[in-house]
Design a protein around this nucleic acid. Sequence first.
DNA 1: ATCCTCACG
DNA 2: ACGTACGTGAGGATA
Length: 901
Amino acid sequence: MANEKTIANASESGTDKLLLIDGNSIINRAFYAMPPLTNSSGMHTNAVFGFTTMLLKVLEEEKPSHLLVAFDAGKTVFRHEGYAEYKGGRQKTPPELSEQFPLLKELLRAFSVPQFELPGYEADDIIGTLTRRAEEQGQTAVVVSGDKDMLQLASDQVTVLLTRKGVSETERYAPEEIAEKYGLTPAQIVDLKGLMGDSSDNIPGIPGVGEKTALKLLAEYGTVEEVLAHGGEIKGKLGENVRGHEDSARMSKELATIFREVPLEQQWTDLAWRGYDASALAAALRKLEFKSLIERLDLSGSVAGDDAETGAAAPVYEAVLVRGADEWAALADALPAAEALLVEANGDNPHQTEGIGLAVVSGEQVFVVPYARLGEPDAGPLRAWLADADAEKRGYDLHRSELVLARSGVELRGQTFCVQLAAYLLDPTEADPSLTGLLSRYGLSGVQPDEAVYGKGAKFRVPDEEALAAHLAAKADAVRRLAGPLAEALEDAGMRRLYYELEQPLAVILAGMEKQGIVVEASALEELGKEFQGRIEQTTAEIYRLAGFEFNIGSTKQLGDVLFEKLALPVVKKTKTGYSTDAEVLEKLEPYHEIVRLILHYRQLTKLQSTYIEGLLKEIRPEDGKIHTFYRQTIAATGRLSSQFPNLQNIPIRMEEGRQIRKAFVPSEPGWRILAADYSQIELRVLAHISGDEGLKEAFRQEMDVHTKTAMDVFGVSADQVDGNMRRQAKAVNFGIVYGISDYGLSQNLHITRKEAAAFIEQYFNAFPGVRRYMDDIVDQAKRDGYVKTLLERRRYLPDIRSSNFNLRSFAERTAMNTPIQGTAADVIKLAMVRMDEALRERGLKSRMLLQVHDELVFEVPPEELDTMRELVPDVMSKALQLDVPLLAEVSAGVNWYEAK
DNA sequence: ATCCTCACG
DNA sequence: ACGTACGTGAGGATA
């Protein structure tokens, strides 16, 4: 390709000039200097953009014949050896920046710019070494950096360009300029640092010595050593500080000194730069979507082919579609080195979905098995590998994979890392759980959205095997690429144990519970449904009679017309689209018209009928008479589970009519019992623990009724003076406290004025000062850190906590108060589930854990284990996590879930 | 698809 | 002055 092009080339004029760029320093400057910028696939690109504009500018101005971008490498820079805190004060690199390093390196390759890094050395050491060698050989060099330390390299032959303000503006420093600006020689720059330190690198210097003082001292004494030698002459506090921090000053100078003897094999002469390949650069810039740069470099004609159009990176793996004996054999050979697994299925409900295909990544190959072939005899080794608990599986949504495989009789064991679960822990509020979404969050690409491959909704089609293989291979490779960075991020966030000891084992336990399922007697539901149906018809007729005509009671629009226009009842509340008719509104309207009570009753009955009778009946599987829910571990922002298809965490209990539904939930074997155990007041106990409030802790230690205790303290009365109404109000206050109290919310709940609610809250905080302190502290903490965490280090980020929008900020503040409470309670019961699973196994019990309902665990138990389980379950639950207050779990058993109360 | 309503902790 | 209690999932109506 005769496409070589240079901006300029100094060697044509006979002078060699070496340009050395401090990659880390410049990309950092660029990141903070440029506004946020992303391309259409969500990659952050602002730092790369800034870097590139800087690069183009200096190439144009300096016209170098030789060129290098040096990067820091590895974590243990040799300077650490003497001083562990070196650079310790540095902020962690934000992911939005770190994800740009690979992009920059790729772009530099397209520029044909030599780049390197050397483990154990920083970029400035490499640059220092190369400038020294250039000097020795009588050549000139230009160094570009944002770091003032680099000025120590300036000489007759070496010029330093420091970025100023932005990134493409630089300031030129030869020794004269340094003398002019600081009155120092380049060599004295390290003395300057030695005295004044550098907070960004955690170099201490001498306390109380800033730039001014340091320059004054150096003007007088010349070097750190001389300053220290004359420490006795320096008067006052300054002299004291100098004399007291001699070691610190010497060490700081040493840390600031660039090491110029790096064992580099490359000579600067190896770094000749002859320009870039226009088509490669155009493709790279297009991928980054730097249209202005493409234009500026006049590259718009240089885009070759479709590949450049889409900017697709060349895959570094080979997709192998498994169709026959040869591929099966190759797959079997590759299994011991498998790095990632992907199981693709076609629907949301893993208990109903059919597998589409399966992919295994091993080295440079990704084997893709169309799902139907999993039953072939040749699949034996693959099935054995899947079932081998010692063969580690890294995957995406392994919980779902296990269920999908189980449906076709394939066992999955040995799950060690799930990128979806890991990503959830790192940011549980991130909405897009797709692999593509995950990739873009981590600055990676190369996978098409599922929708683009399969279509969505009714148009869902599995493409031909080759296209399928390409897609599944890309996804499986994406899992491999994500696993390392995610695992590292978990470590960095202190969530290693949360992941490996709690969430990952729990995923397997949940899959077990779901596969087990719970028997629901269709006949019982149908009986109950008939009864509801009769009452619905009766109520409907009565409503029509009172209205004077028939209408759709279930339509809020029609109902609104009837209530607020025909019957002219007062409008209490409006929604975005019309009149509000929710239960709260209807309760207020009850005194005005008889019809209102009937509507409430109608609502209650139709809810039970459609959601619980008809809804559950549809979910009973004819093969086993059971309902198999699907617990989702990566949905709730607080760390709770959620339950789908159907939701078994919202089966009625508060109203007797609805509670009857629970009679249909029965054991799967004759004579067995349903046993349910629930934590008593777990959230308030957690609050007592994390707030450390003495009064609240004492109440739980005495096993007092916490609402009565609250009433006593808030109303200032003795236990026997607390009446039902006071206790009810105190209970509402306790709920409010857990939810993140606001006077408005409490006033709504108790139907009192905001002022009265505020007075209650004030009374509460006076009675429980530790709780007030917790609420204040947690909000401060959230403002400072940007997130809150639970006892087990689960995190939730609250970006709105610093919002200037009152609503957003208030919401975030309440969330900051609530999440550690609700989330720690979630931690506790999850831990109890892991321990319970172990306990059942260790003791060889036949009892099975079936359901979790946030603070409750439901089991089915054979009669001979009933006594054991009545003790074991509450025991394990109460010991799941040691708090400053007891954790009490109450247990009950019966022939169905209703009776286990 | 989105809104409203309501079941649970 | 602002105007919501925290966290979910599902069904039916409507646009």
